[in-house]
Simulated assay, not measured.
Amino acid sequence: MSETIQVRPATLRDAKAIAQIHAAASVESYRGVLPDDQLKSISSVEKRQAYWREAIEYCEPQVQVAVENDKIVGFIGFDRSRDAKTRPTTGEIWAIYAAPTHWDQGVGVALWDAARDGLSEEGCTSVTAWVPLRNERALRFHESAGFKREMSTAKTATVGAIKIEEVRMQRSLMNR
């Protein structure tokens, strides 16, 4: 991991950069997987900026950013699990994205480390993440961080007008 990556809580001023990373990483992740017209529909920064401003303002989820040389290069949103029937000690990674220019440079690991520490401090003993089945990069990342696929949870999620198959992944927070 790069020694120059710092992780800190997001501020309202960070919402636009977070939205830009969210849109760019989503488009890059699904290029060649989704049709171009659907890629265009997930590239809106304005809607994402409003969402992340509200998330940061109300701390739901908690949002942290990865910064390198005063530039935001990734972000993570985490909190208690939103899934029905999960224990109150189950946390969830709501979103984790690195700028495509910073993929494979330790940004995701730095963000995951910060979220793991934050969730542990809140008393969480396990953590989940919903990951699209066609996003091989995201699946590999979560598996390298110790998450295991729960194939019985596979479902279709709707993102705007796009239907995406996703699976819940889970890992314990009791061990590093």
Rank of each mutant, 00 (worst) to 15 (best):
T128R: 06
L133F: 08
D104R: 13
E136Y: 06
E136A: 15
V109G: 10
A99Y: 09
D117N: 09
F147E: 10
L133A: 03
R116P: 03
A129Q: 07
P132T: 13
E122A: 15
W130I: 12
V131G: 04
V107P: 03
G123H: 11
E143P: 00
E121C: 00
F147H: 11
S120Y: 05
A110C: 05
S126C: 10
P132D: 10
R137N: 08
E136M: 06
T101G: 07
S120D: 07
R116L: 00
D117R: 13
A98H: 11
D113E: 14
G106H: 02
P100A: 15
P132M: 11
V109H: 08
T128W: 00
A129G: 09
D117Y: 13
A145C: 15
A138F: 12
N135P: 14
G118F: 13
A114P: 02
A98G: 12
V107H: 02
R137Y: 04
A99H: 15
E143H: 13
R134C: 07
E121P: 07
N135S: 12
T101L: 11
S126E: 15
S144K: 15
D117Q: 14
E122R: 14
F141S: 02
L119Y: 03
S126K: 08
K148S: 13
R140N: 12
R116I: 05
F141A: 04
E121H: 12
A114T: 02
W130Q: 12
T128G: 08
G118P: 01
R137F: 09
L139E: 11
G106N: 01
F147R: 06
W112I: 00
C124A: 12
G123D: 09
E122W: 06
R116T: 04
A145W: 04
L119W: 05
S126N: 09
H142G: 00
T128F: 01
L139I: 05
K148I: 13
L119H: 05
D104S: 10
S126W: 01
A98M: 12
W112L: 12
R116Q: 03
D104T: 05
D113W: 00
D117I: 09
H142R: 01
L133Q: 08
V127H: 00
L119V: 07
A145D: 08
V127S: 04
C124D: 00
P132E: 14
V107E: 02
S144E: 09
N135T: 10
L133H: 02
S120V: 14
L119R: 07
R140I: 00
S144L: 11
F141G: 06
A110P: 03
W112C: 03
E121N: 14
F141E: 01
C124R: 12
V127C: 11
L119F: 06
F141K: 02
A99T: 01
A98K: 09
D104H: 13
L139Y: 02
G106E: 03
G106V: 04
T125C: 01
A145T: 10
C124I: 13
V131Q: 06
E143W: 13
C124F: 12
V127W: 05
H142Y: 14
L139N: 14
C124S: 09
T125P: 04
H102D: 04
D104G: 05
W112R: 07
W103Q: 02
E121V: 03
G106S: 05
R137I: 10
S126V: 03
V131S: 07
L111E: 03
H102W: 10
H102Q: 11
A115C: 08
L133G: 07
Q105L: 11
R140Y: 02
L139V: 15
P100Q: 10
P100Y: 06
N135Y: 15
E121K: 15
